[in-house]
């Protein structure tokens, strides 16, 4: 966005007013949260072991999710954007589905698929002795399930807008398909790629419903920050408030930092 060059024009006040209401609607809950926060106890509560466990688990799992989404999501996005194949629309709809589905439904679906008696899980258990629910792996799977669509859709949009003549030129100059993908395609969609990673990561960080349903809730193993916040609501509402603030602070800082450093030129696709 080139702010400096935009000419001042008469703004339609009706739109400005509605936009202001929308912005206030997003701002007010944060103010409400901060209004109730017991600031004097902040340092004390943040230093507690269970809170640090939850924070560390959240950071660890959400970063793992971001990496997995990158590894699997980009090829899927490429396939959806570039290759005509029967069932493509179905696959795309499927990818979007987990975005709009209540996460709890996703969690139940995962449970009945990868659980101990599930479609695939029963064989994992009987053949390899692998049980996924109630483990950190389950947390990452739940996060991937809800977060990957954000990366796939962002990257797919960018790929579709990309002028494929550049890639064609690189191919005629003798680049292999893989080389062209790595050196031409990926660099040209870099802003969207980062936007996709950040969106997926942020969604993973906030994941609650699918995690508690599929992975359960145990401090140190599956209790991420959102679960710890929810658990603290009863026993210790002050901790819950402070945990919420910590999460907001982390997400906000990273979104702002990334926006300035990497996403400044995000013209394509979904930008932040």
């Amino acid at each position: 966005m080139s702010r400096s060059r935009r000419r001042r024009q008469k703004l339609p006040w009706q739109i400005v007013l509605i936009a202001a209401v929308a912005a206030a609607f997003f701002l007010a809950p944060f103010v409400g949260l901060m209004w109730r926060t017991p600031w004097s106890k902040f340092a004390d509560i943040v230093r507690r072991q269970e809170i640090r466990d939850a924070l560390w688990l959240s950071i660890k799992t959400s970063l793992m999710t971001a990496v997995i989404c990158l590894i699997f999501g980009v090829p899927l996005a490429w396939l959806l954007a570039r290759v005509e194949f029967p069932g493509r629309r179905f696959i795309r709809a499927l990818t979007t589905l987990s975005m709009v589905l209540p996460p709890v439904v996703g969690g139940i679906a995962l449970l009945f698929t990868f659980g101990r008696r599930g479609l695939i899980g029963q064989y994992l258990d009987s053949w390899f002795g692998i049980r996924i629910p109630f483990t950190t792996t389950a947390v990452v799977m739940a996060q991937c399930f809800v977060a990957m669509p954000f990366l796939v859709l962002t990257v797919e949009a960018a790929l579709r807008q990309l002028d494929s003549r550049f890639e064609g030129a690189a191919r005629t100059l003798g680049g292999t398909r893989w080389y062209v993908f790595r050196r031409v395609t990926l660099p040209s969609i870099r802003p969207s790629l980062f936007a996709g990673i950040v969106l997926a990561w942020a969604r993973a960080l906030g994941e609650f419903g699918a995690t508690i349903t599929f992975a359960g809730n145990l401090p140190g193993t599956t209790q991420t920050m959102p679960l710890a916040t929810y658990a603290a609501l009863d026993s210790n509402p002050e901790s819950a408030l402070i945990l919420s603030l910590v999460m907001i602070a982390i997400a906000f800082t990273i979104l702002i930092a990334l926006r300035d450093r990497w996403l400044g030129r995000a013209e394509q696709g979904l930008s932040l």
């Binding site: 139940i108 009945f112 508690i212 349903t213 359960g216 145990l218």
Partner: peptide
């Protein structure tokens, strides 16, 4: 030692009924 602290009774029922 519990393996999970569910949010309510229905959560417990789901985990046992599904064999998890």
């Amino acid at each position: 030692t519990p393996d999970s602290l569910e949010s309510n009774v229905k959560g417990i029922m789901l985990k046992v009924a599904s064999g998890e």
